[in-house]
Design a protein around this nucleic acid. Structure first.
Lengths: 326, 326
DNA sequence: CTGTTAGCGCTTTCAC
DNA sequence: GTGAAAGCGCTAACAG
């Protein structure tokens, strides 16, 4: 390499200094260090990777980089690997299992040292199969194996807790805007809703449940639908905060006051939720912490170190969109 | 390579088939294709890159992956390069010039084929210097050179247009919560605010301007500050939507109605802004389009193709937080 | 302590 | 059309 020549030593010596692999005499070290600065030299990570068989890169598959929900997790991952010498290669799967699988291929071709998959629609058994080739960490999935760690919150509990909060406030007619039915996050929350209802002896009413899409526009649409059905309700549990935002606007449009006329609870606790008017009561999901945990688990997996995943806890965050009935 | 052996041909032939570099007889092609499928072979991109001297990777430096403002641009970039065979390596600089410079180094060490830098605090001349080593596209910067393209919106115009909208509605006492003063985005918007005032013959009043931080919490704080000063105002121009959200909450807390008592206008048009209550009037910034354009410009730069950057236009988006005075 | 040698997986002349 | 050979930039034995 160029530096070696300039410093009058062999390439090996330069490599040794760069990596601290072995002791080098002080004078040669000086010469090499000078040459490195003079030539503004940076080792070619590609060549290093090819040689070492690992690329110091962690692949991350997210679903939509534009959703605040994912970006918080991304930030956690980023913070978690920062300083470790690894970099994150981020790609999106857009909730499409085929696309996700293709992305996994893309990442493997780049010889990433591990893949973190943030939520998504890939079947669990396929993830297990992938993990035979490369260490994986999956959030929002339940499966584990030798080289696969899963991080998942208890969405059933979350749906249950949200609904129970409403019930505790005296509500009995509680509507629900569900999420995308193919995602277990959504169906789990719905299951929790039903469970809380049943526990309180409130019969489940199909007319009070409508299917959204986890986005604001869906929330707006669904709330209107709910209202148009004419079945009265005093509280609404939205499957996520974005849905709640949309529903909130629907209510606003019709002059329905929150929480005076209808109590509203969301799910996620997005960064914007403390700043809605009024601030949104919600189930806080520790997305940032999930990201950090995913990163830590991956680093441990790569380094063959033990790591215990503490399942992150959901938390009822009471703000001002829910109130006691009467 | 393994595939070559399995198919009974040389590595060169496999390479030729993989890249379509030369004609290969049909039978060998068949054999190789079969072997590829059988062995589930994917070429090692690292080795390819090392050989070819380009990595099929575009580095992206963003400032904070958790801000909706940046993630929209990121999505645009991602969509823009998808299908081109390139992948995006995303890192954040956190508004810290030193950190940004270090990240550029990290990306260069990985031999990225180009770097897109999304906003940030690196001095322009340093970007020019970087661009001597690797093609660059910078958003929010003005400098251009041989291997450097810049994409920037006219923030002065935006600040001017926002303020003028308020003036057209009859407002004369217009407050402003500014952004981070080290960012030209912020100072430009402030300049536009002053310009509109001057044009309308309204004297600039220091007591009506306070410095925020482009975030909700800052907006809340600053709006309270403004209110506490006791200098009356009927309209507020917030330097970005997040600031507007915070200010909106401050007003809500004090029973000040928007837009009945105070008109409010933001800047950016974040995905959530059409869903605030009431929906936020703002200056729409085409962040997604900026991302796409950055990607297209980069691809053109890499391919040595000509590309004309159409400076993206800001647009006054009137919704329901501003109204005519009286 | 340090230089020599071989090779990571691929592409690309250069012959045949 | 196709194989042999060289080499991208680096690291890791292996000798000294």
């Amino acid at each position: 390499m160029e530096v070696a020549e300039a410093a009058g030593v062999s390439a090996s010596t330069v490599s040794r200094i760069l990596n601290g692999t072995a002791r080098v005499s002080a004078d040669k070290r000086k010469a090499v260090e000078k040459a490195i600065v003079d030539l503004n030299f940076t080792p070619n990570v590609l060549a290093q990777s090819l040689k070492r068989g690992q690329s110091k890169t962690i692949g991350v598959i997210t679903q939509a980089v534009d959703s605040p929900f994912f970006t918080e997790t991304l930030k956690g991952i980023e913070d978690g690997i920062s300083g470790s010498g690894f970099a994150a290669l981020i790609v999106s799967g857009h909730w499409n299992p085929d696309e996700e699988a293709e992305r996994v291929g893309l990442l493997m071709a780049r010889k990433v040292d591990g893949i973190i998959i943030v939520s998504g629609n890939i079947p669990d058994d396929q993830i297990v199969r992938f993990s035979e080739h490369v260490p994986m960490v999956a959030t929002g999935h339940g499966c584990e194996s030798d080289r696969l760690r899963a991080i998942r919150v208890d969405n059933v509990w979350g749906g249950y807790r949200a609904t129970k909060h409403l019930i505790e406030l005296g509500h009995r007619q509680i509507a629900h805007i569900a999420g995308i039915p193919t995602l277990t996050d959504a169906t789990d929350r719905l299951a929790g809703y039903k469970q809380a209802l049943e526990e309180a002896g409130i019969p489940y009413n199909d007319a009070l449940v409508v299917q959204g899409d986890f986005r604001e526009s869906g929330g707006l649409l669904c709330a209107n639908q709910l209202l148009d059905r004419g079945v009265p309700f005093t509280a609404l549990f939205a499957a996520n905060d974005q849905t709640a935002y949309g529903a909130r606007l629907a209510f606003f449009r019709r002059g329905i006051r929150v929480p005076d006329d209808i109590s509203l609870i969301g799910f996620d606790d997005l960064p914007g939720s403390p700043y809605t008017t009024p601030p949104l009561t919600t189930i806080r999901q520790p997305v940032y912490e999930i990201g950090r945990m995913a990163a830590a688990a991956m680093l441990a997996l790569i380094g063959n170190k033990p790591f215990k995943i503490e399942p992150p806890q959901l938390e009822l965050t009471i703000r001002e969109t829910t109130r006691r009935l009467r």
